[in-house]
Amino acid sequence: MAEKFDSLEEHLEKFVENIRQLGIIVSDFQPSSQAGLNQKLNFMVTGLQDIDKCRQQLHDISVPLEVFEYIDQGRNPQLYTKECLERALAKNEQVKGKIDTMKKFKSLLIQELTKVFPEDMAKYKAIRGEDPPP
């Protein structure tokens, strides 16, 4: 799994480095550096080809669109992961609280109904079986 990403990362790093060097040539262009510029342009094309080849290995990877919003705003995409985890934990705790409360309510209801309708509750318990205490 990680090997696929490593290869893509390596290709992307090479590509970015090539673009950086291309930028340096162009920023202060000298006639003698025309051959180097042509070479860099062709490296750029081969770099894009290499990155395109990585696509076949990563077709099963899906990226949430919200991550792109973070990147577009110049924010660290790890913040998205952090917020996702925090949200998941908060929701998890909320649902756990609801489930625990409902279990308590159920046991109390059965307790009180047994006092008032002992025969019917005996039948009910026979069908359902004894519930474990919450």
């Binding site: 110049g74 660290n76 952090k82 489930i99």
Partner: peptide, 28 residues
């Protein structure tokens, strides 16, 4: 269900400690 700790169920404690334990820098 939500009664179980889903982060421990899916073995995400390491990721949780990594991202939520310390401050993540804001900038890209």
């Amino acid at each position: 269900t939500g009664s179980t700790n889903l982060i421990t169920h899916y073995n995400l404690e390491h990721a949780y400690n990594k991202f939520c334990g310390k401050k993540v820098k804001e900038k890209l």
